[in-house]
Design a binder for these strands. Structure first.
Lengths: 321, 321
DNA sequence: ACAATCGCGGTCATCTTCTGACCGGAATTG
DNA sequence: CAATTCCGGTCAGAAGATGACCGCGATTGT
């Protein structure tokens, strides 16, 4: 009965992967009769995993939150994200769950295929960003929106646009995109009957997921590309600042060890010094990290970075008095 | 055949939970005959999950890393750790996996039981420290050691003790404990024939997991309590630095909006000012983040924080020139 | 070298259950 | 009202699961 068990797992995987499925869709996907699907759903329920079902023309099955956590079926990318997340949680950036994180991490790493392990190592070598000076986003909101995108359900929320005008929006979400600096929602605004992008940090009020909507495909097919075009077109510079450059009075090799390669490049500048450049736009947190190295340093450019440094000196200077 | 499928999942769960199991143990646990266990193992293998087996008197089954990631069976605490880890990963502290983290988070939160969701919310609102400047631990090392503790395998490593004396250690690990500031390994040193605690950041050289050792129980039964006693006895102060307090000359409400609640608390200090306290130990990054607010500020305490401020002024002061 | 332990896999008889096909019923949408 | 969808009953045949028994080979420790 390998077939049956495997099918149950596959069914669970499908239900975790996407919105709602009709019995027929599941039956086609799993290559069994619809009756068997009904029976399998019954089995999942008897195992404690609540599969919700809705009859009617827009009905379907969907996996809900129950008393027991079902086995998580992750694809490669998600497994990497989980591993990286656990690593940062373990190394002490969150209070109270370090030991549990380590336990979960040990469990995951034991079964993590080698090809994924390499990528986890690569990514987690680059932890604790300079970045993230951007607006803080509530992860719960983020997850809700991402879920709505996956499920193709409508979203209702209040939005404050660039010009501070508030409005109520009803959209059919398509994708959540991270620009490297900010989070955006790409969605079809049903009231305006056109595509729009929303900065998620400007979404406010109560966020409600609505009824099942149409699944939309963004013009061009690639939400990230679409967002990029939109940002460029609207003139909203998303990361216009030039890289920051700071000269450190320590040898390049020594600096390289202390600076995550992912965020900045280190070039030697003579024997005893080096120049560190951010890979992307400079941010004040870059300054922070450089200052925290506690080595003699000098801002090469841009002027705004030097200005920020002076401002910080002023503030810190007062603080001691 | 709910039984069979459920048993397969339970088997997977057991194999993810612990070291090696003999067929008999598994049979007892799952209340079936040993022959059925063998058949179930066969089934798992045919599903692509590599169950390694060792014959002989010290043999047993263990789940290895295969080409495919098996379904993760997490207990409550682990599920929370994963959710919290994903949330921090999603909100931008790690570059390059934000979107995947959000996807995985949406998947997990959809099925997360309500009782766990509450705890996730509570915890992710309570991150500690501004990047906890404590010694950086390689999460890979941490996971390896935690795995050895769980599996009861021997560990071999080089260790540098407090007095800078290096030594080679062969131990039977018992538990990994986080003091809230540092990571420790509680283990039985087979060469010295006694219990020892090791600071994990002092473990160096190549860390090797050895053969199957005895499963040890620390005197008293509670590794955390044991560690605490040891630390107290040896006079090694582990207690992290006290919270940092900085007075800002802006109203509390305004400060609250700009300071993530999870990192620090804001109390009003008159109408026009407030005092910001770190939730955990102060660190230099707290200082810098406050400076980045670019508002008049004053270090209330502790004195070391004020000292750090003066030092930083020196560094930054050079930087502008 | 020997014995004990443990995983491996074959066979067999019995029993359970799975599957697909058919049916009518109930809920929901439009 | 019609269409769609989930629900669950029944039936017969097929398929698989289980436990009991067996000998084999590998590993460990004496």
């Amino acid at each position: 009965m390998v077939q049956t068990s495997a099918r149950l797992l596959a069914l669970l995987s499908l239900l975790q992967m996407r919105r709602e499925w009709t019995g027929q869709e599941l039956a086609d996907r799993l290559e069994v009769g619809p009756r068997t699907i009904r029976r399998d759903v019954e089995k999942l329920r008897s195992l404690g995993y609540p599969v919700e079902a809705a009859p009617g023309v827009a009905g379907g099955y969907r996996l809900g939150a129950g008393g027991e956590l079902p086995p998580l079926l992750l694809d490669d990318a998600e497994a990497i994200a989980v591993a990286v997340g656990l690593r940062t949680a373990a190394t002490g950036s969150i209070a109270g769950i370090e030991e549990t994180s380590v336990r979960a991490l040990a469990k995951l790493e034991q079964v993590l295929p080698a090809r994924l392990r390499r990528r986890v190592n690569a990514l987690s070598g680059a932890t604790s960003a300079f970045g993230s000076e951007g607006p803080r986003i509530d992860a719960d909101v983020l997850a809700t929106i991402a879920g709505a995108c996956r499920d193709g359900t409508e979203l209702h929320f209040a939005y404050v646009a660039k010009d501070d005008k508030a409005s109520k929006r009803n959209v059919e979400p398509c994708a959540v995109v991270y620009s490297g600096y900010r989070w955006y929602l790409v969605a079809f605004d049903t009231d305006r009957d056109d595509w729009r992008t929303f900065r998620i940090d400007r979404i406010g009020g109560r966020l409600r997921v609505g009824a099942r909507g149409r699944r939309r495909t963004v013009p061009g097919g690639d939400p990230a590309a679409y967002l990029k075009r939109q940002l460029r077109a609207s003139g909203a510079e998303d990361s216009p600042a030039p890289p920051g450059r700071i000269r450190l009075h320590i040898p390049a090799a020594q600096a390289g060890r202390r600076i995550p390669e992912r965020y900045a490049t280190v070039e030697p500048d003579g024997e005893e010094a080096c120049v560190v450049s951010t890979r992307g736009a400079w941010s004040r947190s870059f300054l922070v990290w450089m200052a925290l190295l506690d080595e003699p340093m000098h801002v090469v450019g841009p002027p705004e970075l030097a200005e920020a440094a002076r401002a910080m000196v002023t503030r810190l200077g007062e603080s001691g008095g």
